[in-house]
Computed example of a mutant assay.
Amino acid sequence: MIAKTPEPPYYAVIFTSLKMKEDSGYAGMAEKMTQLAQKQQGFLGVESARESLGITVSYWKDLESIKKWKQNVEHQEAQQKGKSVWYKSYKTRIAKVERDYEFGK
């Protein structure tokens, strides 16, 4: 589903990952983190796709909201498990969205 975001500017956190083959509870934790993020102040939406390469883009009102999400205790626990169990590698990018446009039928 395409996230409904407000007029720019806002921020995008782009999380790109290569996952290990075994799930080991990954899908459940990913769903839990999405639900938890949705409750965070400044959260605007999320989009995610996974094949062999996973990409999740979450949208945030400001940099302070992103910082608070990164510091969330449950999110930090998931990050640690990601490093020890789920991911071969990952990269996180934070970008300011200055313009967007869309098409839809």
Rank of each mutant, 00 (worst) to 15 (best):
M1Y: 07
I2A: 08
I2N: 11
A3I: 09
K4I: 13
K4A: 07
K4H: 09
T5H: 06
T5P: 03
P6Y: 13
P6G: 13
E7W: 03
E7T: 10
P8E: 03
P8Q: 11
P8D: 11
Y10A: 05
Y10D: 04
Y11Q: 02
A12T: 00
V13M: 02
I14T: 00
I14F: 00
S17W: 01
L18N: 14
L18K: 15
L18T: 15
L18W: 05
K19T: 12
M20N: 15
K21T: 11
K21L: 05
D23I: 04
S24F: 10
G25D: 07
Y26L: 15
Y26N: 13
A27E: 15
G28M: 04
G28K: 07
G28R: 08
M29W: 04
E31Y: 08
K32Q: 08
K32G: 01
T34C: 07
Q35R: 14
Q35H: 12
L36S: 03
L36K: 02
A37H: 04
K39F: 03
K39W: 04
K39A: 09
Q40R: 15
Q40C: 11
F43H: 08
F43D: 02
L44E: 10
L44H: 06
L44A: 06
L44F: 03
G45P: 01
G45E: 02
G45A: 05
G45V: 02
V46I: 15
E47A: 07
S48A: 14
S48R: 05
R50E: 09
G54K: 00
G54A: 08
I55E: 04
T56R: 04
Y59T: 13
K61N: 06
D62G: 06
L63A: 14
E64L: 13
S65G: 10
S65R: 03
I66P: 07
K67W: 05
W69L: 06
K70S: 06
K70T: 12
Q71R: 05
Q71P: 05
Q71Y: 05
V73A: 12
E74K: 09
E74F: 05
H75L: 08
H75A: 12
Q76K: 13
Q76N: 12
Q76I: 14
E77A: 14
E77H: 09
E77K: 13
A78R: 00
Q80E: 11
K81M: 11
G82V: 05
G82H: 09
G82L: 08
K83E: 15
K83M: 10
V85M: 09
W86P: 01
W86D: 00
Y87K: 03
K88V: 09
K91C: 02
K91T: 12
T92M: 13
T92P: 00
R93L: 12
I94A: 02
A95H: 04
V97A: 00
V97K: 00
E98Q: 03
E98M: 03
R99A: 12
D100E: 10
D100N: 12
E102H: 10
F103Q: 06
K105G: 13
K105E: 13
